Simulated scan of single mutants.
Amino acid sequence: MTAATASSPDGTIVVVGSVNVDLLAQVQRHPRPGETLHGTGGQMLPGGKGANQAVAAARLGARVAMVGAVGSDVQAEAALSALREAGVDLGHVAEIEGPTGLAIVTVAEDGENSIVVIAGANDAMDAGRVRAAAEVISAARIVVCQGEIPRDGIEALPALVTGRFLHNPAPVMELDPAVLRASDPLVVNQHEAGLVLAQLVPGQEAPEDPDAVVAALRAAGIPSAVLTLGADGSLVADQAGVRRIPPAPVEAVDTTGSGDAFIGALALGLARGDDLATAARLASRVGAFAATGEGAQPSYPTAADALPPLQEA
């Protein structure tokens, strides 16, 4: 697949986040503690949640700028390769003395993965480096961020954003509740939603029912939320109410980066003016497509690829 050639939607997407290389290994099943298993693979592929989301949006035709950092090692070019191919603006990606971020990804035969992330240069993305990109951030229609850069870098963002702040706090860290309440939308799975609610409403236990979870997020001051439910699709909640988005069933080969593909497509939909539910329907199809190929960024579709249909309600 090649970079998307569709015309860009109005409004730039800026992704502030991690840039990694992924060391990919396939195993029959995940090892138990203390166990050694034979595996295959060993490829070094471009990754990082931030870069994944930027590539996913750009391959679909969005105009995307990346704000992040790579190291001074030989892995930096591999980490940036798919961003370059997709046409992402790399003018705000710094080179930091030391190693590029690394993710060690183990994929079992059923497509499920386990990941160990070593931050490397991503640890340099503090508030100062984020503020250095204030001009491009403030000009963006959608600003996307995740949880793979330092806390103060994330907390610097809301004051710079003039468009929508699409926040995917993964992994979840302690943040100023005002930053969480600036998320529009907040995109989380059910486990992450519980951790966020615990920060917003100390002492409150997260409901088990997904509809109650998104209602609780809204009641805690989140303007809009997307709750991803894996094979069950997702829920979106905003001023228009709560809507269930069906999944796009596929035969999963590797789920690595599928959630990031979902967010990149969601950002594209919002940047071109789609409502949240419409953007989430596209995101479900793009995330499902990504699970049918190996790795993260190499599996992402372009605007010319045929996306799987959503399951009928």
Rank of each mutant, 00 (worst) to 15 (best):
Q204I: 01
V144N: 04
V188G: 01
D152R: 12
A225D: 06
S234T: 04
I222P: 01
S234K: 07
L195Q: 12
P150L: 00
G233P: 09
N168D: 14
G153L: 10
G163W: 06
V136S: 09
Q204R: 14
A215Y: 07
G128P: 06
E155P: 10
V226D: 04
A182L: 10
N189I: 11
A225C: 12
P185L: 06
A140S: 14
S138C: 09
G203T: 06
G194A: 13
L217I: 05
A206V: 11
R181W: 13
A193S: 08
G147M: 08
G147V: 02
H191D: 01
A212K: 07
L180F: 01
A206W: 02
G128S: 14
A198E: 13
A182D: 07
H167F: 15
G203D: 10
G203W: 14
P150T: 02
E208N: 10
M173G: 05
G163D: 06
V130C: 11
V213Y: 00
L200P: 08
S183T: 03
A139V: 04
P158W: 15
L157S: 04
R129A: 06
V179D: 03
L229G: 03
A156H: 09
Q204E: 12
T228F: 12
G203F: 05
V196P: 10
R218T: 04
M173V: 11
Q204L: 15
A156T: 09
A182F: 13
R131H: 03
L175Y: 07
M173D: 12
M173W: 02
A193V: 01
I149L: 15
A178K: 15
R164K: 14
D209C: 09
I137T: 03
P185T: 03
D152A: 08
D211M: 10
A231K: 11
D152Q: 13
A219P: 08
H167G: 00
T162P: 07
P185N: 09
A133K: 03
N189M: 12
P210F: 00
V136G: 04
E155W: 15
A134L: 04
L217E: 08
S183W: 08
A182H: 07
P169F: 04
P177K: 14
P150C: 12
A139H: 13
D184S: 06
V201A: 05
A219R: 13
G203I: 07
P169E: 13
S224N: 10
L229W: 10
R141S: 14
I142M: 14
G203A: 12
L195V: 05
A193T: 00
V136M: 02
R129W: 11
P169G: 11
Q204M: 14
R181H: 12
C145V: 08
D209K: 15
